[in-house]
Computed example of a mutant assay.
Amino acid sequence: MSTQPQVQTVTTGADKAKLVAAAALLLGSLVAFYLLAQKDMWLRVVVLLLGVAAAVAVFFTSESGRQLIAYGRESVREVKKVVWPTRKEATQMTGYVFAFVVVMALFLWVTDKTLEWALYDLILGWKR
């Protein structure tokens, strides 16, 4: 039996309107950027950044935006709980991985050369 509580998402009309408004602001800022092609680049970039900032602000006032913020906070909280390895442990594990890779590479090379010798020299009789 699951111990997780059932999450029920209720999307209101106002929430949908906020998401549509955020998308419209984002699209509008992109259109404005290209419509202002004859103006200075700094003006175009400022208009684009202001439009994107407005779209992000509207998005974060919606339920989806609040859920995203809550998810980010929970993620940070979980990362703080992680017990990170010490420098010595990380160095040792890296050494073990490199040693394993070298041993595996040698094993595969020996296996390849053995199969090559058995197939080409013994079975097919091809001499190089």
Results as ranks from 00 to 15, higher is better:
Glu116Val: 00
Glu78Ala: 15
Leu106His: 12
Ala90Gly: 02
Met104Asp: 14
Asp112Cys: 00
Ala105Trp: 01
Glu63Phe: 04
Gly95Ile: 03
Leu122Ile: 08
Thr111Tyr: 14
Lys113Pro: 03
Ala17Asp: 15
Thr91Tyr: 10
Tyr96Ser: 13
Ala53Asn: 10
Gln6Lys: 10
Val47Asp: 05
Met1His: 09
Val45Leu: 15
Ala90Pro: 02
Phe100Arg: 06
Leu49Cys: 00
Leu26Met: 14
Phe98Val: 07
Val45Ala: 13
Val101Ala: 09
Gln92Ala: 11
Leu36Thr: 06
Leu25Lys: 10
Val79Asn: 08
Gln92Val: 14
Val10Thr: 08
Glu89Gly: 04
Arg128Trp: 09
Pro85Lys: 02
Ala23Lys: 12
Thr61Lys: 13
Ala32Thr: 09
Gly125Pro: 07
Glu89Val: 06
Arg66Ser: 08
Leu25Asn: 08
Val56Phe: 13
Val97Asp: 14
Leu43Ser: 13
Ala21Phe: 04
Tyr71Thr: 05
Val20Gln: 15
Val83Phe: 05
Ala105His: 06
Arg87Thr: 10
Val97Asn: 06
Arg128Leu: 13
Ser75Asn: 11
Asp112Gly: 05
Val45Tyr: 07
Lys18Asp: 06
Thr12Trp: 02
Ala53Phe: 08
Leu68Pro: 00
Phe60Ser: 01
Arg128Val: 08
Val31Pro: 01
Leu26Gln: 11
Ala118Gln: 00
Tyr71Glu: 05
Gly125Cys: 01
Lys18Ser: 11
Ala14His: 12
Ile69Gln: 12
Val47Ala: 03
Val7Ala: 01
Leu124Cys: 02
Lys39Gly: 00
Leu49Ala: 02
Leu27Glu: 10
Ile69Leu: 12
Leu25Met: 03
Leu26Gly: 13
Ser2Asp: 14
Pro85Thr: 06
Lys16Ala: 13
Glu116Thr: 09
Ser64Asn: 08
Met1Asn: 10
Leu115Met: 11
Gln6Asp: 12
Ala17Ser: 07
Met41Glu: 09
Gly95Phe: 02
Leu68Trp: 04
Val79Glu: 11
Ser75Ile: 06
Ala90Ile: 05
Leu124Trp: 10
Asp40Ala: 10
Arg73Ala: 05
Leu26Ala: 14
Leu35Gln: 14
Asp40Phe: 04
Val31Leu: 14
Leu124Arg: 02
Tyr34Ala: 07
Ala99Cys: 07
Glu78Lys: 09
Trp109Thr: 08
